[in-house]
Nucleic acid binder design. Structure first.
Length: 520
DNA sequence: GGATCCGTTGTAGCT
DNA sequence: AAGCTACAACGGATC
């Protein structure tokens, strides 16, 4: 009787799941025990400061997965609470024997790599061999690409395109992404193993029941979350936003507006909204990739880097860089971060930014949306991160990175750090630092502001609900009679701008230039 | 080996 | 109103 303990870290799904697929198909494996560890790097570890939105998303995803395993496979998800290096050996002692397997998904970030190394060592004492499957979170096998002698760090869309083609082969329309795996046929449930786990003394207090998870989720906010967690939601959304929208996929280009034109759903984002599901592994990136290819088959379509597949390519690029660049998440000792002399940490500035009280309605609306929903539009992320760093507040990008990491439901170590490096203008792959976003967009801005954006501000900054569109992005410029009749006097009901946007932009450009000249 | 070009996604002012 | 231009001006790749 050979057991395979399937430790799902960032793969909270049944579709295209190489771990379950292998355990299901392997003749060597007699029984499969799927587990999740709350307290791991992917499940609210000890240092976790994650927001309620993120925890709720995770709980919902676990619940959905457990339900699928029960209803469709007669199996279940064993949820353990604690450090993986401690609780997995306890579980192994209870049920494992010589020749058993621990399988998990490979993750590239340092904490997850350390975590699996320590678990591998400790379960080896029980004769259990650990196998980490590559290409679960990403299309590429990160470790093998980065370990290749020919590997050079990608810095542009053509670099990552070349790496993908070399690594996966040439396809008719770019690289050849492997087909997603089908659902496993049989997950070889072993009821007696599940029973012995729940009766075990050494695991008592470490096992988390589905009722406890459900209860935990129910106290985190009332009503429907903006993005409900789970594979079922993920596949439903993929169908709704990609598979059934081939024209949207074919025409996808850099987003220029935040919302769709759907009058019934003014808050529905103009992008796919699939990122929360990708970041937790509720959705397989290969599955998304192939759905996009499918949509592109029927006629002409946009191409990388601007297409949806282009977005996925940059995702692969940041995963590679996050593995090969030392100190990827730091501003010192990071070869991809030029040393810019940011201002002293200013708690007033950073907390005004974080809480949406900067006096810049567009910025504030987005920061409040982030707080409330755990999500912010792509364009909003550009605007607020530029604002905090090289644009207006001249604060170190790491302060903003921390806020995003904690609050975003789609937060992802590789991508979050990569995007902040890019937007702060410090990375070799970033946009030129002197391209500063206007935090008060007008009709000529690249943000292509329309009436919808004014509605967006009114929704998230209710103080300005009655403000006329003409002044809504810079309410302090409205004549006092206008402010009074809109019921919002700047300085009384809504803050004055915390900085002069033009002056701060001018000064910051000079400071950035100065820092650069010091390096050279 | 210096000049030139390019880089996923700018802004503001003028006509 | 859309389109042009000036602004500001980096670093790496390429020829």
């Amino acid at each position: 009787m050979v057991n395979a303990v399937v430790w799902m870290r960032n793969v909270l799904r049944v579709h295209d799941n190489p771990l379950l697929h292998w355990a299901s198909n392997s003749d060597e494996v007699d029984s499969v025990i799927p587990i999740f560890v709350l307290g791991s790097s992917r499940g609210m570890g000890a240092e976790s400061r994650e927001s309620d939105n993120r925890i709720r998303f995770l709980y919902d995803s676990i619940t959905d997965l457990d339900k699928k395993l029960r209803d469709e496979y007669g199996s279940r998800l064993v949820v353990l609470q604690g450090e993986p290096g401690r609780v997995i050996p306890l579980l192994a002692r209870e049920i494992a024997s010589e020749g058993d397997w621990l399988v998990c998904d490979y993750l590239q970030d340092p904490v997850s790599r350390r975590e699996v190394a320590s678990v591998r060592e400790s379960v080896a004492e029980f004769g259990v061999e650990t196998r980490a499957f590559p290409s679960v979170t990403t299309v590429l096998d990160i470790e093998s690409v980065v370990g290749d002698e020919a590997y050079r760090e990608p810095k542009s869309s053509s670099d990552i395109d070349a790496i993908l083609r070399r690594s996966l082969g040439e396809g008719p329309d770019g690289c050849l992404v492997p087909e997603p795996l089908g659902r496993p046929a049989d997950l070889k449930p072993d009821t007696s193993a599940f029973d012995s786990l729940s009766e075990s003394d050494s695991l008592s207090g470490l096992l988390v029941s589905k009722d406890e998870i459900a209860e935990g989720a129910s106290v985190l906010g009332v009503g429907e979350p903006y993005f409900p967690g789970g594979e079922s939601e993920a596949l439903e959304r993929l169908k709704r936003k990609v598979s059934e929208m081939p024209d949207f996929v074919r025409r996808f280009s850099k987003p220029s507006t935040m919302s769709t034109n759907d009058p019934d759903n003014p808050m529905e984002p103009s992008t796919t909204g699939l990122s929360p599901y990708l970041s937790t592994g509720c959705l397989s990136v290969r599955t998304v990739w192939h759905e996009c290819l499918q949509a592109n088959l029927s006629s002409d379509h946009t191409k990388p880097p601007q297409s949806l597949i282009g977005q996925l390519m940059f995702r692969e690029m940041f995963y590679l860089l996050s593995r090969s660049v030392e100190n990827w998440d730091d501003d010192v000792g990071n070869s991809n971060c030029r040393p810019i002399e940011w201002g002293e940490y200013d708690e007033d500035l950073v907390s005004a930014w974080e809480s949406g009280m900067t006096g810049f309605p567009y910025i504030d609306a987005m920061m409040r949306q982030l707080e409330a929903t755990g999500w912010m539009h792509h364009l909003g992320r550009h605007a607020v991160s530029c604002f905090l760093t090289r644009g207006q507040l001249w604060q170190n990008w790491k302060h903003g990175r921390d806020v995003f990491e904690r609050k975003l439901v789609d937060s992802d170590w590789a991508l979050n750090n990569g995007n902040w490096l890019w937007l702060a203008g410090v990375a070799p792959f970033s946009m030129p630092y002197y391209r500063v976003y206007n935090p008060c967009p007008d009709s000529k801005s690249s943000l292509n502001v329309e009436a919808k954006e004014a509605e967006f501000v009114r929704h998230w900054v209710p103080e300005l609900a009655s403000f006329p569109s003409r002044y809504i992005f810079e309410p302090h410029l409205a004549p006092i009679e206008v402010q009074e009749s809109a019921g919002c006097v700047v300085g009384r009901d809504y803050p004055h701008p915390i900085v002069d946007r033009k002056e701060s932009r001018r000064v910051n450009l000079e400071l950035f230039k100065e820092s650069l000249s010091r390096i050279a």
